[in-house]
Amino acid sequence: MQTLHFILALLLFLTLGAGLWRAVVGPTAADRMLAVQVFGTTAVTITLLFAQAFGNAALRDVALMFAVLAAVTAVAFVRRAWSEVGVDDDSE
């Protein structure tokens, strides 16, 4: 059972790789923010699977921290990476 979680986590590395490829190639800044968002979600999942694979409950705290900090980093990207254009980001 333990190895299944570990192998599933390895598979998720492919998603990380895809996100990274999009981050490197991504034509627009939006693609890069998308990539950062993918990193966050995938990291949360990998850490949850590790928590089950290693049987270490503390890893769920790491996943919790990942979830929250990925959101803050993604918002930082949206609010700062585009600011050089200075257009209203999302006012109606």
């Binding site: 990380l16 996100g19 990274l20 981050a23 490197v24 800044a29 890069r32 990539a35 950062v36 990193f39 990291a43 990998i46 850490t47 590790f50 270490n56 503390a58 890893l59 705290d61 790491v62 990942f66 980093t73 990207f77 990476a81």
Partner: peptide, 25 residues
């Protein structure tokens, strides 16, 4: 530079997974 920062964030994330792998929670 914007791409460098994105990749640096990915580097930080992979670093965190390495710490998890090395039992340094």
């Amino acid at each position: 530079l914007i791409r460098a920062i994105v990749i640096f964030v990915a580097f930080g994330l992979l670093m965190a997974l390495t710490w998890v792998r090395l039992d340094a929670v």
